[in-house]
Design a protein around this nucleic acid. Structure first.
Lengths: 237, 237
DNA sequence: TCAAAAGTGTTTTATCTACACCCATGA
DNA sequence: TCATGGGTGTAGATAAAACACTTTTGA
């Protein structure tokens, strides 16, 4: 940040950034994409990817652009959603920086990308980060906490879980998403009943997939609905 | 906004504001506090109250300060919550202004206040604004829509409804809050059962209040819980 | 024919809805 | 004693949780 910017911030303006909590599921584990910071402050620390919002773009566009730069994902078959703004005066030692936090959910997101900022991007199990209360730069621990809670809630009342599954998927795969994110097991038969009953959640493709063992599973794709009625409550079954 | 600010914005910084959707219930009607703008742009238009976030305050503090300036309410017995950030480049004709939107919910909020900005503050029925799609300045129609939807959701899963009731309150008064905000009637006996069963939602004071007619109603105060378990679904009873 | 995973059915239990009914007060 | 709103009870319908059971595949 050059001196002109610093002086401007002093006048009462803010730098506005977007930060992204990008989640995917790999090996039945919820992972979040972190970068290793190459510059001060918090050089060498892990942080959520993000960056400045440009002059001519909306916040959503900024988030989508950063996402592309960090992961190479173009945003199809991916859920992107703003979930909070963080602007404590001390959250960035360089001065007032207000960040708009987004969460991104997707299936099969790539390992890393050769982009400039993302040179040191890597997937980390969420559980591992939560163990240590202050493992991330800035207030990113707090942001990650909020993002995770939001995702857990969203699984209850919306159909987003399907974006974690490459299409077509089986109901067992979809159930696994819930189990991984909620950290508990669900009854397979009751889950099946609820998932198929909820209007527009999943629709059968008519095809099957045969596994290593056992009866072949019917394949589904995501339905058109975005809200789950009735909801799938965490507290239940 | 002076020229120095304008030039700074040009550099890529933003003005950051908070805007408030302040709701209360008067005469069994959901009301929102609007101000009449005294300056360009949108001079003469109604708008949500709000203002710049100061250099040394958090976003929450900024929202609380604006709230105090606009309504004279000090924030006790009042729910204040951030619910979104709005930052389209064209949302303010003066240049890039990112606003952090808050909703405030309270009982018996005062009619108006002699503060500087709030000289023309007045309560308006929400329904009246929603009739006309573009009755507010900037993107405040959109912000109000989002705020209202958030409030409706919050009544389902949290105990916030109690902040609309001056304490102590009767269960009928609390039910009326739901009916006004959801725009539908609820079965009094089923509502009672659910409200009293939900752990920490309301607690009896042991006192009664005698109305104009009918049996005196038991009085309650809000409980300690902030989440409603089980939830009170809009779709139900 | 056995193991493994998919998928169906059923029993028990809890919950919700709708509504009847009783209670306590002022007029 | 009647009107009015507060509050309780309950029958029938609905849905949820737990789990037994059947189906279809690979080995």
């Amino acid at each position: 940040m050059d001196e002109r910017l610093a002086r401007s911030i002093d006048v009462g303006l803010s730098l506005v950034t977007v930060d992204l909590a990008i989640f995917t599921i790999r090996n039945e584990t919820l992972m979040v994409l972190l970068i290793e910071r190459g510059v001060e402050p918090f050089r060498g620390c892990s942080a959520l990817p993000g960056g400045r919002v440009r002059k001519q773009e909306t916040l959503d566009q900024g988030a989508r652009r950063e996402l592309l730069e960090e992961t190479g994902v173009d945003g199809t078959r991916l859920h992107l959603e703003q979930f909070g703004a963080f602007g404590d005066p001390e959250r960035d030692p360089r001065g007032r920086v207000v960040t708009i936090a987004y969460l991104a959910l997707g299936a099969d997101l790539p390992e890393a990308v050769g982009g400039t900022d993302a040179a040191h991007a890597h997937w980390v199990p969420v559980e591992e980060i939560l163990k240590t209360p202050t493992s991330l730069a800035f207030d990113h621990d707090r942001i990650l906490d909020d993002a995770l809670e939001r995702v857990r809630e969203k699984l209850e009342y919306t159909t987003v879980a399907t974006v974690f599954c490459p299409e077509p998927f089986t109901l067992s795969e979809l159930r696994k998403v819930y189990e991984v994110i909620w950290g508990r097991e669900l009854d397979p038969s009751n889950f099946r009943r609820k998932a198929t009953k909820a209007e527009g959640f999943v629709e059968p493709t008519g095809q099957q997939r045969t596994q290593q063992a056992g009866r072949p599973a019917a394949l589904y794709r995501k339905g058109q609905a975005s809200f789950l009625t009735p909801p799938l409550l965490r507290s239940a079954s």
